[in-house]
Design a protein around this nucleic acid. Structure first.
Lengths: 242, 242
DNA sequence: AATAATCCTATTGTCGGACAATAGCAATAT
DNA sequence: ATATTGCTATTGTCCGACAATAGGATTATT
């Protein structure tokens, strides 16, 4: 041997607590839904104080790996697409991404998602999509709130129908980012509801016909149309979403 | 007035500390790069103890909103695409997403990214891409390690060239997820390097010709080829990446 | 007996203080 | 001039204590 030493493990104790628990979650020793031992137990097991354990728990909490149940007990939950999407869009917002960036991504991703959806959407999901569309049709023209909700729900349904958690998370985070601003914009766009409805109609038809090209094409138009709303409302697309 | 009361703010103090600081970061009172007051200062300002402040800091730490500088001081950093990508891919891995899901996303996103890139890549970025490719060409056939590094770097360069943080983060998280497994797979794929090189060549040509369709087409082939490596290596695509 | 009010207990949330470990910087020695 | 040492501010960890809560057990009320 060369007489040299390995660098000793120098991470703070709370980080090691975090990693130890994360490890047990990812290798399955702590199963999804199981609840974590009490803080006192963890102290005993790790041989550290409660303050330290608690700092470790805060890290896990933020990662979404543990969640408060009733009685404030923590239990394990492997992060779902929705968590990842929420975390990502929050970070994007804090990082100051702009409307153009979001729309750029929307325009790139969603048409392809629609193409996939045409191949992959189950008949039930398509039925659900129709239902969303019907809901929108029944909404009053001036109820912009509900209009946006339905528009976003429509996107959401498509994303879910892809049966792919990675894409779901990505598409969902986009939904979250535009959702809020769309609310303010739609109010200023004349006839928004009608245009949304007709785009949705064409999309559903394309899905039913299993025509990917057509679906992609209409999705492209639909998104371009939504984006136009921002122009009409004179939103500077280079400013940060918030 | 109706004599009723607002529900009082009942979040634990450490969460309120977290939110207060996050708020100041997002509204710009705490600018990027500024360093956080010392824990003792924060205690004084918030009127809570250090333990509580520290639990709040752990949350910020995990979110990536604050980062340790020299002297272990925290300083503010708005999350960059790389952080989001790292966090997302970690969550995906913990959530148990499968290779198929990742490849599905790759196959959907990257061809479109390539199409965009053909329009948008600056001449400098294209030059950089060529450089990455040259590096790969000089690598020994058996150096699978380096082969994968270059292959991923090539993707990375394209992602960066889109000049869109949202797409960058999404593409990067995909890179992270396949990067590791690719390392093991390429070793079993015969002539992998040659095939990667020729795909890259076609891609660069397409970029230079500003031919989006062609770029998308070659990217599709390139990814299909990488995926084939997993078949050859007999990896079950329905198992979780990890 | 059924229901509502009350107490009990386990656990988390918060506190205050204490000391060790460290990093950066200043003072000192060679 | 450079290397060493000591100083100081700050973080990392620990301890012990108590208040606040949630759920479940227990009692009172009809």
């Amino acid at each position: 041997m060369d007489g040299s030493f390995e660098p000793i493990e120098r991470a703070p104790a709370y980080i090691r607590v975090y990693r130890a628990i994360e490890e047990k979650i990812s290798d399955g020793s702590l199963k999804d839904g199981a609840h974590l031992p009490t803080e006192a137990d963890l102290c005993a097991q790790f041989g550290v104080t409660r303050s330290t354990v608690r700092e470790g728990l805060r890290l896990l909490e933020q990662t979404g790996l543990i969640v408060r149940g009733p009685a404030k007990k923590f239990f394990i939950r492997r992060p779902a697409a929705a968590d990842i999407a929420a975390a990502a869009s929050k970070s994007f917002a804090l990082g100051g991404v702009t409307f153009s960036e979001v729309f750029d991504a929307l325009a790139t991703l969603y048409p392809e998602a629609a193409r996939l959806a045409a191949r992959r959407l189950s008949p039930e999901k398509i039925a659900d999509l129709k239902k969303v569309r019907t809901t929108l049709a029944l909404v009053a023209d001036e109820d912009h709130e509900a209009t946006v909700d339905s528009a976003v729900a429509f996107f959401q349904q498509i994303a879910k129908g892809l049966d792919n958690r990675v894409m779901l998370a990505m598409l969902q985070s986009l939904n979250l980012m535009i959702g809020e601003s769309l609310r303010h914009v739609i109010a200023r766009a004349p006839k928004a509801k009608d245009r949304i409805l007709s785009a949705q109609k064409k999309l559903v038809e394309a899905f039913e016909a299993r025509d990917g090209d057509l679906a992609a094409e209409w999705m492209r138009k639909h998104i371009a149309d939504l984006k136009r709303g921002y122009d009409v409302a004179k939103v500077d697309l280079d400013e940060a979403i918030l």
